[in-house]
Measured scan of single mutants.
Amino acid sequence: HRQALGERLYPRVQAMQPAFASKITGMLLELSPAQLLLLLASEDSLRARVDEAMELII
């Protein structure tokens, strides 16, 4: 289940942060499945989480 969510998330994360897409997707997969579904449904929520992840990385 998580694998399938990751496969759906990755291209969207890659479009926002290509250099760190794998790392960010891995970080996002730590969230609950319900939270992941919310990110897939909301571009704004996904962008906010990706921005948060980038702050942790750099």
Results as ranks from 00 to 15, higher is better:
1 H>D: 14
49 R>C: 07
2 R>Q: 10
56 L>V: 13
20 F>K: 04
33 P>C: 13
45 S>W: 04
29 L>E: 03
16 M>E: 02
52 E>G: 05
47 R>Q: 11
10 Y>N: 03
1 H>N: 12
49 R>N: 04
54 M>P: 00
6 G>Y: 14
21 A>C: 02
7 E>N: 05
50 V>C: 03
24 I>E: 00
24 I>D: 00
40 L>C: 04
10 Y>K: 07
53 A>S: 09
17 Q>S: 11
36 L>W: 03
20 F>P: 02
52 E>Q: 05
23 K>T: 11
27 M>R: 02
4 A>V: 13
20 F>W: 09
34 A>K: 14
12 R>Y: 09
3 Q>D: 15
46 L>G: 00
29 L>R: 02
47 R>T: 06
45 S>V: 07
47 R>W: 06
53 A>K: 05
24 I>A: 00
12 R>N: 06
9 L>D: 01
50 V>T: 02
24 I>G: 00
4 A>W: 15
44 D>E: 14
30 E>G: 08
39 L>P: 00
18 P>H: 08
21 A>S: 03
5 L>D: 05
32 S>D: 14
28 L>E: 00
42 S>L: 04
15 A>P: 02
50 V>K: 00
18 P>D: 03
2 R>L: 15
17 Q>D: 03
12 R>H: 12
30 E>K: 13
22 S>M: 14
32 S>Q: 13
31 L>S: 09
54 M>L: 08
4 A>G: 13
48 A>T: 08
9 L>P: 01
23 K>F: 12
43 E>F: 04
5 L>T: 03
1 H>T: 14
27 M>D: 02
43 E>S: 09
46 L>V: 01
18 P>G: 06
36 L>K: 02
53 A>T: 11
5 L>G: 01
45 S>Y: 12
38 L>H: 06
33 P>T: 11
7 E>K: 09
44 D>M: 10
7 E>S: 07
52 E>D: 08
7 E>D: 05
28 L>S: 05
38 L>V: 13
56 L>T: 11
37 L>A: 15
31 L>M: 09
5 L>Q: 03
55 E>A: 09
57 I>G: 02
28 L>W: 01
22 S>P: 09
7 E>Q: 12
52 E>T: 04
17 Q>M: 12
9 L>F: 06
5 L>R: 01
8 R>M: 12
37 L>F: 07
20 F>I: 04
16 M>C: 03
17 Q>Y: 15
48 A>S: 12
23 K>S: 12
27 M>S: 02
12 R>Q: 14
28 L>M: 04
25 T>Y: 09
9 L>C: 02
3 Q>H: 13
39 L>A: 08
55 E>N: 10
5 L>E: 05
14 Q>C: 08
48 A>D: 12
19 A>Q: 08
26 G>I: 13
25 T>Q: 03
18 P>S: 08
40 L>P: 00
50 V>R: 00
46 L>S: 00
17 Q>L: 08
58 I>F: 10
37 L>Y: 11
51 D>G: 05
13 V>M: 01
7 E>L: 12
38 L>W: 06
49 R>P: 01
6 G>A: 14
54 M>V: 09
33 P>V: 10
29 L>M: 09
43 E>L: 05
4 A>F: 13
47 R>L: 05
10 Y>F: 11
10 Y>R: 04
43 E>I: 09
50 V>M: 03
24 I>R: 00
35 Q>M: 12
28 L>P: 00
46 L>I: 05
49 R>K: 08
34 A>C: 11
33 P>E: 10
25 T>K: 02
42 S>P: 01
3 Q>P: 07
16 M>D: 01
44 D>H: 04
44 D>Q: 11
21 A>I: 01
29 L>G: 02
52 E>H: 10
25 T>S: 06
43 E>A: 08
8 R>V: 11
15 A>T: 09
29 L>D: 01
40 L>M: 10
32 S>F: 07
8 R>L: 15
32 S>I: 04
16 M>T: 03
32 S>R: 05
34 A>P: 13
19 A>N: 09
58 I>K: 08
46 L>P: 00
29 L>W: 02
55 E>Q: 14
24 I>H: 00
51 D>T: 10
48 A>P: 02
50 V>E: 03
55 E>W: 12
16 M>H: 08
20 F>S: 03
57 I>E: 02
52 E>K: 08
57 I>H: 02
24 I>W: 02
46 L>E: 00
45 S>D: 11
46 L>F: 08
23 K>Y: 07
27 M>N: 02
49 R>L: 12
1 H>Y: 10
38 L>K: 08
12 R>M: 15
8 R>Y: 08
43 E>W: 09
23 K>Q: 13
38 L>Y: 10
34 A>R: 05
3 Q>L: 04
29 L>T: 01
38 L>M: 12
56 L>R: 12
13 V>Q: 01
26 G>S: 12
24 I>V: 04
32 S>P: 08
32 S>G: 03
57 I>V: 03
8 R>Q: 15
29 L>H: 02
15 A>Y: 10
13 V>K: 03
27 M>Q: 04
10 Y>T: 02
19 A>P: 03
8 R>A: 09
49 R>T: 07
21 A>Y: 04
17 Q>E: 04
37 L>P: 01
57 I>K: 01
58 I>M: 09
13 V>S: 00
55 E>S: 11
52 E>C: 06
8 R>G: 04
39 L>S: 05
55 E>T: 13
1 H>S: 04
56 L>I: 10
45 S>F: 10
50 V>D: 01
24 I>Y: 00
55 E>F: 10
15 A>Q: 09
30 E>S: 12
47 R>Y: 03
53 A>V: 13
44 D>W: 03
36 L>H: 03
41 A>D: 11
18 P>N: 06
15 A>F: 11
54 M>K: 15
57 I>N: 02
9 L>Q: 00
12 R>E: 07
21 A>W: 04
2 R>G: 13
42 S>N: 12
12 R>A: 12
11 P>V: 14
53 A>I: 15
48 A>C: 10
52 E>W: 10
40 L>K: 00
47 R>A: 08
9 L>V: 06
36 L>C: 07
42 S>V: 06
57 I>M: 08
33 P>W: 11
5 L>P: 03
11 P>E: 15
4 A>Y: 13
